[in-house]
Design a protein around this nucleic acid. Structure first.
Lengths: 212, 212
DNA sequence: TAGATTGTTAATCGATTAACAATC
DNA sequence: TAGATTGTTAATCGATTAACAATC
């Protein structure tokens, strides 16, 4: 039965991974799977899989396991992949463009609706389907359009002030690629992708592992 | 005193963040800081900071706190930022190019030394200082050059086979941006940057927070 | 029905926080 | 010295794993 307690971030963070494996299984034509089999595939314990899923509901059947398509769809619903989210990108640099051109987001219902940049010379540039707009029209844009998530791919120094503009404009979620930890008010969601941190962690582990 | 036990990934993952905050403090001219003050800044407990640091050594002084520059440098050494690492990029698409052009890595000693792509039409293209090479010369390249970390920015379907080529060629660490969990042998380090997963987590949290 | 596997409770493990003696 | 703050041990908390009754 679905619990009603606060669900930990550790559990949430694992959901997309379940979804990914189930998607692959479905594509391979697998109809059913037990927590045991899935656990071998994913290198986690079967216990953890069952615990995680039961935070949201009983999706399996005793003696049978889980129906792959059904479970995938249910996790999709939990993650909200059945709905469309409007995303805007702030910063039309290399990273911003890479994200805009990356095809994998739209499959999951994430739709880019606008790009902004402070650099005069970039304004008017085409990126995929979109045209780069100046930063000065951002506030006006936010008044007229619904934005679910703002993607921040700007230099460190401008990140904090742009974040404030976004929040003042009603944005509730920021996907932050700037190399800084944004200080945001209660109720605003920030997900950081600190590439440098990630690389440093890898480098540390690589050296540790070599040293043995 | 420095412990000698296995240090958890949770602790390692926090080191770059400490480094970042100390770097900012140093740039602002702050000479010393107590775990108490740093904890307020970073929104973590002072206990955690002291515990984390003491995995690696006693960097502070009772009654004084920590010298910012000294602590920053020591964490830098732990992370190996005083050494240069050779990185190659596999996949000269938007994301690969974005990473190659991103300036923040070289500051920390990460140096891109080659780019490869399977697409004939991209071979010979310039990306920053480098020229895109064909995938067929990858194995030869690995024989002749030392590579610390391979950055994988290729489509999902080719990731697994390229990873094998890299590992066969002696690569010990892979920074994986492909939307797949690589299955690698013991002793090979993989750090995943699953952008889709990250975005899904943010979207989930944003909706949860709105729902309240 | 018998066998399999879930959903869920209980036990364990590890990470975080609190407390305080050591010491600058 | 007195005050402040670390390094470190002990207590707490939460997450993971194990176990098993419920049930398909």
């Amino acid at each position: 039965m679905a619990g009603n307690k606060e669900i930990s971030q550790a559990v949430i963070a694992r959901l997309p991974r379940y979804y990914r494996f189930l998607d692959t299984l479905e594509a391979m034509g697998t109809e059913r799977i037990s927590s045991q089999e899935l656990s071998k595939l994913m290198h986690v314990t079967a216990s953890q899989i069952r615990q995680d899923l039961n935070h949201f509901g009983g999706f399996g059947q005793q003696g049978y396991g889980y129906n792959v398509t059904y479970l995938k769809d249910e996790i999709g619903k939990i993650l909200g992949l059945d709905a469309t989210r409007q995303l805007i990108v702030i910063g039309a640099g290399n990273l911003g463009r890479a994200l805009l051109n990356y095809g994998n987001f739209s499959k999951s219902g994430f739709l880019f609706t606008a790009v902004f940049d402070a650099d005069e010379r970039k304004i008017g540039d085409r990126v995929g389907e979109l045209t780069v707009q100046g930063m000065e029209v951002l506030t006006a844009y936010l008044k007229e359009h619904h934005v679910d998530i703002a993607v921040l791919t700007v230099p460190r120094d401008s990140a904090e002030s742009i974040a404030r503009t976004l929040i003042d404009g009603g944005v509730k979620a920021i996907w932050n690629f700037a190399h800084i930890d944004l200080d945001v008010p209660e109720g605003i969601q920030v997900e950081n992708v600190h590439l440098v941190d990630s690389l440093m962690k890898l480098a540390y582990n690589a050296r540790e592992s070599e040293a043995k």
